[in-house]
Amino acid sequence: MKRGEGACLVCGQPLQYFREAREMECSVCHGKFKSYASCKQGHYVCDACHEKKGLEAVMRECGESGSKDPIHIIQTVMQDPYLYMHGPEHHVLVGTALLTAYHNAGGELDLAAALREMEARGSGYPGGACGLWGCCGAAVSTGIFVSIVTGATPLSGKPWSLANQMTARALDAVAQLGGPRCCKRNSFTAAQEAVLFTQENLGVSMKLPEKIVCRFSDENKECIGKKCPYYQKKWER
């Protein structure tokens, strides 16, 4: 199922979330997993199957883009039909867009290697963690970005601090906008904070658009409308 055809990738029905994980079988790969969500018809798609085609688009675009603006890169990738309204692919998208823009803005980086590492780390962060763990994957993606460009490890000094500061700053900005979750809103917000943080702390100046406008509100049944700083009515676009 392509983007915009419904929440469930099998039948299009809305998803429902559980307070405790249940064992489920992925409707695509038939693997058995513990999950907190399924559609109302009982269909479940694991994170790996959900994000597979979307990540192909993420890696392709970020590997080829010459833009210094991560929001532009993010919005370009989001047009792909397999980059769904919500999903764990955003946990990779934000960081890869930032790595690409950072490299294009003069940041010293082996971009190809960095993108592969971002995909590996970001893919390990589960969907739904924003509500279930209290830590949005888009914010975590900015922390991974800083970790990669600074070479941070659990034993690092300043790089370790910077990576955690980045996640905290992005997470606070995301949280201030309120719920319910929106992977588009959170991605824009986290990336914007990362651009400012990178200039302040790493001395690399990426670019941002004068105004960030979301083109996906019609696909989001939980869109908060005018409460979102990126919302624009369809007839105003």
Rank of each mutant, 00 (worst) to 15 (best):
M1G: 10
M1A: 12
G6N: 06
G6Q: 04
L9T: 11
P14N: 08
P14V: 11
L15E: 07
E20M: 13
A21M: 13
E23Y: 06
C26P: 04
C26Q: 03
C26K: 03
S27M: 10
H30P: 00
G31I: 08
K32A: 13
K32Y: 12
A37K: 14
A37S: 14
S38I: 03
Q41D: 15
Y44Q: 08
Y44M: 09
D47A: 12
C49W: 05
K53R: 13
L55V: 12
L55A: 00
A57N: 00
V58T: 06
C62A: 12
S65L: 03
S67E: 12
I71K: 10
I71R: 11
I73D: 02
I73N: 03
I74F: 15
Q75W: 01
Q79N: 13
Y84M: 08
Y84A: 02
Y84F: 15
H86G: 06
G87Y: 06
E89Q: 14
E89W: 01
H90E: 00
H90M: 01
H91M: 05
T96C: 15
A97N: 07
A97Q: 05
L98V: 09
T100W: 10
A101D: 05
Y102N: 07
A105I: 02
D110N: 15
L111E: 05
R121D: 01
G122E: 04
Y125E: 02
C130K: 08
G131V: 00
A138Q: 14
G143F: 06
I144T: 11
I144N: 06
S147F: 04
I148A: 01
I148E: 01
T153K: 07
S156L: 13
D172N: 13
G178I: 02
G178K: 04
P180E: 10
R181N: 10
C182K: 00
C183Y: 01
C183I: 06
K184Q: 12
R185P: 01
R185A: 00
N186H: 13
N186Y: 10
S187D: 12
S187H: 07
A190N: 08
A191T: 02
A194N: 03
V195W: 01
F197V: 03
L202I: 09
S205Q: 12
L208V: 08
C214T: 08
C223R: 09
G225M: 09
G225S: 11
K226M: 11
K227W: 02
Q232K: 13
K234W: 09
E236M: 14
R237Q: 14
